[in-house]
Structure formats: structure tokens, C-alpha cells
Simulated assay, not measured.
Amino acid sequence: MSTIEENIAKIAARIRAAAHASARDGATIGLLAVSKTKPAAAIRTACATGLRDFGENYLQEALEKQLELSDLPLIWHFIGPIQSNKTRPIAEHFDWVHSVERLKIAQRLSEQRPADLPALNVCLQVNVSGEASKSGCTPAELPALAAAVAQLPRLKLRGLMAIPEPSADPAAQRAAFEQVRALQDSLNLGLDTLSMGMSHDLEAAIAAGATWVRIGTALFGERDYSSAS
């Protein structure tokens, strides 16, 4: 068994345990493997274990890997900040976008989504901790943004994404994630997705209702950002 396979098994066991502790069905919690800066060979190894969902932050790197792995039945998620001049290839080559924070970006994704593809699944990124270094709309901006995005024709608004301020306190972790869950519930849009939780806080995220946990280093090892673009 390779290190990647071992790591996937360990994370899957943590997800199952967290789901059991929260009286949730583990099948409702997806493992999104964050493969940014990692080679296509690592994704191929992870796919061989049954993983299908992979998250990328850097567009050009992602497009190159998609081409190299086109023989595999992968589902691609864009999870990084989105520049206006990169919306077309994102709309054309991804199945999910987790990081929509502005209406202009959502409108461009909708306009540029090819008609022969299913509607693009999108999550709105909300900055619940108010950190200047984090992307995302504010909680106050969220209702108007969600209402507008829900009306766009080539998008399917699925839910919210958040990266709360890191904390070693499980109670603080859970409080932040429950704020995200409360924000989603308050929208009354029938949304089904909460993209939140990483390797250090996935248990708290699952307890608060996460449906995607985004795991990278704990699966693939430390990252080398020297060639990221």
C-alpha cells in the first residue's frame, strides 16, 4: 500500500468516526482531495483507491493535469480565488466552483458555461472570521449575493464554502462552522452543500454539518509552491 493510499484510509476512517459521533450518515460527507501543486501521478494513485473528486487552486496547473488525466472519470473542483480573466476556462473545464464571492464572477461563469454541459455547481465563499487575508463575502453581503446567483441560468447554487480562522480549540472550531450552517439555513434556498473543514478541524466541521471536507497535505504530503501558477 502506497503512502497516499494509507493516508486516504486514515482520513476516511476519521470521517466515518466523526459521522458516527454526530449521528450522521457518512455517505453524505464527501472527501475532496486538494491536489494543488501535486503531480498528475499522485492523482492517478488516489483515483485508484476510489477517489473521484479533486480540488485545484491554480488554473493553468489544473488544466494541464486535466489533459494528462483525461482517461480517468474525475470530478474537478475549483477552490481558489477567481480572477475575471480566468472565468471562461473555469466555466468550461470544472464541475464545481467553491470560491464564488462576487456577483460579477458568478455572472461571467454563467455566461461562459458551455450549453452542452450541465449547470456548473457553485458554492459561495463567506468570510465568517472577518480576516483581511481571507477571501469571501461578508455575512451581511451573503443574502443579496445568494439571491442573485440563484437566478443565474447556467449555474446551480449548491451551498456555502468557508475557511474559518484556525483554532486548536474544538469548541471554537465548531462555533465557526455552526455560524456557516446558520447562515445557509437563513437563506431558505434549499441548499444542500457545506464545503468546510480541513485536516485539523474536520471533526468539528462534520459535527456542524459539512458535506465536503477539503483535505490536501494529509493525503499527499507537504506542498512545494515553487512552481505553482
Rank of each mutant, 00 (worst) to 15 (best):
T3W: 13
E5S: 10
I15N: 01
A17E: 14
A18M: 09
A18S: 15
A23M: 10
R24N: 05
D25F: 12
I29E: 07
A33M: 10
S35M: 04
K36S: 01
P39N: 12
A42F: 08
A42I: 05
I43Y: 00
I43M: 09
A46E: 00
C47Q: 12
A48T: 01
T49M: 12
G50D: 10
L51C: 14
L51V: 03
F54A: 06
F54R: 01
G55E: 00
Q60Y: 08
A62F: 01
L63K: 04
K65Q: 05
L67Q: 14
S70R: 14
D71S: 15
P73I: 04
L74R: 06
L74C: 05
I75F: 05
I75E: 12
P81E: 08
I82Y: 02
Q83I: 11
N85K: 05
K86Q: 13
R88M: 13
P89I: 02
V97T: 08
E101M: 00
E101I: 00
A106G: 09
Q107N: 12
L109D: 02
E111K: 07
P114M: 05
V122G: 09
C123W: 02
L124Y: 14
N127P: 13
G130C: 03
G130S: 13
G136Q: 11
P139T: 08
P143V: 15
A144F: 06
A150V: 04
L152M: 11
L155V: 01
L160F: 05
A162Q: 05
D169A: 09
P170Q: 08
A171N: 13
A171C: 10
A172D: 15
A175N: 14
V180I: 14
L183S: 09
L187T: 07
L189M: 08
L191N: 07
T193L: 06
L194Q: 04
L194V: 09
S195I: 02
S195M: 06
M196G: 11
G197T: 06
M198H: 10
M198T: 11
S199Q: 07
S199A: 15
H200Q: 15
W212T: 04
W212K: 01
W212C: 03
V213P: 01
E222T: 15
D224R: 03
